[in-house]
Design a protein around this nucleic acid. Structure first.
Lengths: 205, 205
DNA sequence: TGTATATTACTGACTGGTCAGTTATTTTAA
DNA sequence: TTAAAATAACTGACCAGTCAGTAATATACA
C-alpha cells in the first residue's frame, strides 16, 4: 500500500479504515468481525490498523462518533428554516426516505442494536447526542404547530416518536429482510403515505 | 443437577436451555455468547447442552423456532373474530403494548437483527412464517374495512407497515435505550395515541 | 546532483488467551 | 448391576494485540 505521508492522507486512511470497519461490523457483528479483515478491506495489513487505533474497541468508538452526530445539526437547521409546521413535516418526510436508502444510518443502526449491550456508554452517548436531539427537534416543531393552531397535538413527545417510527421500521427492514430480495420495499411511497396520514391525523376536524 | 429421566423432564430441560440461550444471546450476541454460560444459566454443565443440541448453531435455530411462530396464529384468529375493521384495529393496538412489554419479542428481535447476516436462512424462514403473515393479516383487515366503506385505505400493504412500525420502534427502544433508565417510554400511552391517529387518518372525511 | 543517513509507515509471524466441541469418567436411579 | 445422564478435563482452531524487521521517503551533506 502507498504510504500516507501528509496528515491529510492519514486522515483519509483513518476514514478508509472506519468505512471498512462499518462494513465488517455490519456483516459479522462486533465480536465476529476480524481486525485482519477490516485491515485488508481497507487495503492495509493488520499492524497498520493499530497505528491508527489503540484497539478494536477504539475502532468501534471511532466509527459511531464519525457518523450521525454531524447530521443531526443539519436536521435541526432544516426544520427551523421551514415556514410552517406542516411544511417542516413535509420536508422531514422527504428527508427520511433518503436517509433510509442512501445513508449509512441503517447499517449503523443494525450494528448499534446488535452490540448495544457490549457498549452501554456508546449507546448512552448516542442516545443523548442523536436520538434525543432528533426527537426534540420534532417535538418542538409539533408544539410550534400546536401553538399556532395549525396542528392538533395531544402529546408532542409521543407524537414525535410516531413520526419517526416508520423510519426505524424501514431502516431495519432494508438491513435485515432485504438482502437479495426480488421486490424491495417502496420507501418513497411508504413515506408519502405516512406524510398524508400524519397530516390528516393532526389536522383540525 | 438432577437427572431429567422422563421425556417430559427432558422437554423442560430443553426449554430451560432455550430460555438461558435467549438471555445469553440477547446480552452478548450470538458469537460472544459462551456455551459454558448458557449451560450454567440453565443450571447444567456445558457437556449437557450437547446432549440436547448438536451445536451452538442448533441452539440458535431451536430458539428462533420456539418463539413467535405459534403466536402469529393466535393473532390471525383474534383479528378474524372482530366485528368490524375499526374494532380489529383497536384489539391490535391493545395487544401491541403487551407484546412489547411482556413477551420475549423485543429480545428476540434484537438477537435476530444483530445476527441476521450470520443466519440468512433463519431470517428468510422467520420473515415468511411470522412477518409476512402478520403484515398479511393486517392487510386483509384493512382491505375488508375498505370494502365495507368503513375505512379509507389507499395502499393496504404500506398502511399495514405503518400500523406495525411503532411496535418495532417501541421494541427496539426498550431493548436498546432503556437499560437502567429512570423514565421508561410509556408504551400504553404510545399505542393509545397511535390508535386514535390511525383511526382518524383512515376515517372518511 | 548524487549518496549516505535518519525517519516512519507499514508488514506479518508470533504469543497468549479464549472457547466450541469431544470424550473419559462419575453419578444416579431403577 | 447397568444404562442413561451429567460432568469436567481436554484439544485444537481461532484471533486480538505485539513487535522485530522492511522499505519508502525525507533530510543532510558533499
Amino acid at each position: 500500500m502507498n504510504r500516507a505521508r501528509t496528515s491529510h492522507a492519514k486522515e483519509q486512511r483513518r476514514q478508509a479504515l472506519l468505512d471498512a470497519a462499518l462494513d465488517e461490523f455490519f456483516e459479522k457483528g462486533y465480536t465476529a468481525a476480524r481486525m485482519d479483515d477490516i485491515a485488508s478491506r481497507a487495503g492495509v495489513s493488520k499492524g497498520t490498523v493499530y497505528l491508527y487505533f489503540k484497539s478494536k474497541e477504539q475502532v468501534f468508538h471511532g466509527l459511531i462518533n464519525s457518523i450521525a452526530s454531524p447530521k443531526i445539526q443539519e436536521l435541526e437547521v432544516v426544520l427551523h428554516s421551514a415556514g410552517s409546521a406542516k411544511e417542516a413535516l413535509q420536508m422531514l418526510f422527504r428527508i427520511m426516505p433518503m436517509i433510509v436508502a442512501h445513508s449509512p444510518m441503517p447499517k449503523l443502526a443494525k450494528v448499534l442494536i446488535g452490540d448495544c449491550n457490549a457498549f452501554p456508554e456508546v449507546v448512552c452517548h448516542y442516545r443523548q447526542q442523536v436520538i434525543d436531539r432528533g426527537i426534540g427537534a420534532i417535538t418542538q416543531l409539533l408544539e410550534a404547530g400546536k401553538r399556532s393552531g395549525e396542528l392538533q397535538v395531544a402529546d408532542a413527545d409521543l407524537t414525535a416518536r410516531l413520526v419517526i417510527a416508520p423510519m426505524i421500521y424501514a431502516a431495519i427492514w432494508r438491513v435485515v429482510f432485504e438482502i437479495g430480495v426480488e421486490q424491495p420495499l417502496n420507501v418513497e411511497a411508504l413515506f408519502e403515505l405516512h406524510d398524508s396520514m400524519i397530516i390528516k391525523a393532526l389536522s383540525a376536524d
